[in-house]
Amino acid sequence: MVNTLAPVTTGRVAHGAAVDGRSRTRRRRQAVVAYLFLAPALLFFALFLILPLGFALLLSMSRWAGFDLGDIDPVGLDNFTGLFADGSTFLAPILTNTLLFALGTVALALAGSVLVATCIDKLRFQGLWRTLYFLPIVTTVVAVGNVWKYMYEPGGLVNGVLNALGLGSVAFLQDPDTALPSVVVVQAWASVGSAILILTAGLKSVPESYYEAAALDGAGPVTVFWKITLPLLRPSLLFVCITQFLTGLQSFALIIVMTKGGPGDATDVAALEMYRQAFSYGDWGTASAAAFVLFVVVLGVTLVQLWIFRRKGEDA
């Protein structure tokens, strides 16, 4: 399933002997056409990938209040040391929140999707179930965030259910202790559909004969799940885990919509802090430095992912 690492070339060594003049002009013409076809993409990457990266790197090592590009003031690594200085909130709670947010989302989404995917596999109307579980994924974060924010309110659905069960109301998003878990639940709710999809595909690739053999040996459903389903599902599980973790590390749109990082900094995460430093406080230098710190974390996780999958590829 994950195969970025396959050799890049598509094969076919040029048939070297037949290099006469005609094929040489043809080949040259093909190169020109190829670069024409690639031109829009390459131009875009130059303008919207390489230039911004350079600019962000420059900003991360500068002090700048915005406005005039001539006023960019180089300060070396001050922005980075500032982030990790005593009294800075970046390491704790912000980076800690980021990790908790990502880990919490992965744990919940994984548990939910494994449970549902193994059950869906045994049912009819799989398409119908899949469609329902997919609704949150095609819905804008503004809708997801507002609906849940409203449901968490004292007069909202969640507290309505709690009250109906005879339990007291909870100030989910207003209490610093419950705010982060409450947002995690929503992020997991919104991402469980694609996890189910990938796990269902993984389950389909488990040969039926394994289950038949287990049934002949008298294995119960629990044993089958732990001894057969789960081990064979490992590649899909790993994939879901890592991609969800990466998404969790970077997402902040849901938090902007639901809590804006509050109460206090109870739900402030690194990407949101970057956003606020830049667009609320005008501290572009610190914001860019925060972005690069988070990027290093994300890159680290990505490299671990590549390493794991490469090793798996070699095993197979």
């Binding site: 990266l53 690069f292 988070l294």
Partner: peptide, 9 residues
């Protein structure tokens, strides 16, 4: 490259 890296630049 994650998208958040590019919002500012």
């Amino acid at each position: 490259f994650p998208p958040f890296l590019f919002f500012i630049p």
